[in-house]
Design a protein around this nucleic acid. Structure first.
Lengths: 159, 159
DNA sequence: AAAGATTGATAGCTCAATCTTA
DNA sequence: TAAGATTGAGCTATCAATCTTT
């Protein structure tokens, strides 16, 4: 956040050290989302659709709820989204052999082709973002992020 | 993403090294959002409202568009949101002395009280998330995230 | 014109209720 | 009863058009 004048705000001095780091992470996340959205738009995809088909490319056969939970979105959203992608000929649904309540989702040939292009764009952005990382910096980022996930998962359940 | 069976997917092996790190960052971001939402709800706040009043606590006097751009949201959203917070007695708007098109936003006494509690909760979560970081890990995270922001800002403008 | 803010139409998300199968 | 998926109501976000001031 930029202000018109420099502030001597005692609250800012009292913030935990990690505050500044986390603000930067959040900003990076949002900027990455913005850049990816722009580029993915060239394929006629929205980010939600992008996320679904790339997930299916990497992890074929997952259920809608697994996708929803992975994307931190409601299962009703996934229901509508998958319907739309199926009607667009990108996804095929087959009933799970062992549990006929659940759909197993797969990409069609057309869907796989598009998902590969979408993943290539994502890889370009992620590679550009991290181009100047040292090997050690990258390793630290990965290690630290995974530990943070573990802590937050525990915090989420502990209520 | 968890799958029912372990997959030997060549695509996953071909992903850039940074992919795994970035996936973890995105997951941490979403988990943090979920945990914060839960806790902030106790104050009767949604995350969008939380973000606005905490921003005003740290950076009083900013305009609506500055807030919108900081939150990566549309200015129309901020217009509605600020209206609501003003009607709730949390925010006061005064016309900018030098430019009467713009509002200068400030917290009311009631708003400041609430914002301080909201910031305290945010600090708790951020501190918990990073409790097991070494000083060096924290420094690396901050440095790397800020550089990533710079790269992405350049990528966003270059179109 | 250009910029800050607002309004209104459209699209998307959240959440609870419902249906079907396990 | 519980779980996967779907539907519908209500709310929020997005985007373009508009108003006012610079």
């Amino acid at each position: 956040m930029t202000t018109t004048r420099a502030l001597k705000n005692s609250l800012i001095d009292e913030l935990p050290l990690a505050h500044e780091a986390w603000v930067a992470v959040v900003r990076a996340y949002n900027l990455c989302d913005a850049v990816l959205s722009e580029r993915i738009e060239a394929l006629g995809l929205k980010t939600a659709e992008h996320e679904v088909i790339v997930s299916l490319l990497l992890y074929p056969g997952v259920t809608q709820q697994q996708l929803a939970s992975h994307s931190f979105t409601a299962k009703s959203v996934m229901s509508v989204l998958v319907n739309k992608l199926e009607q667009g000929g990108l996804i095929a649904r087959t009933v799970d052999a062992r549990d006929s309540r659940a759909w197993r989702l797969q990409l069609t040939a057309k869907g796989e082709k598009l998902a590969r292009r979408a993943l290539a764009i994502q890889n370009e952005v992620v590679t550009a973002m991290t181009a100047d990382y040292s090997a050690e910096e990258l390793a630290t980022l990965m290690r630290v992020s995974k530990r943070t996930c573990s802590v937050l998962e525990a915090l989420r359940e502990a209520r």
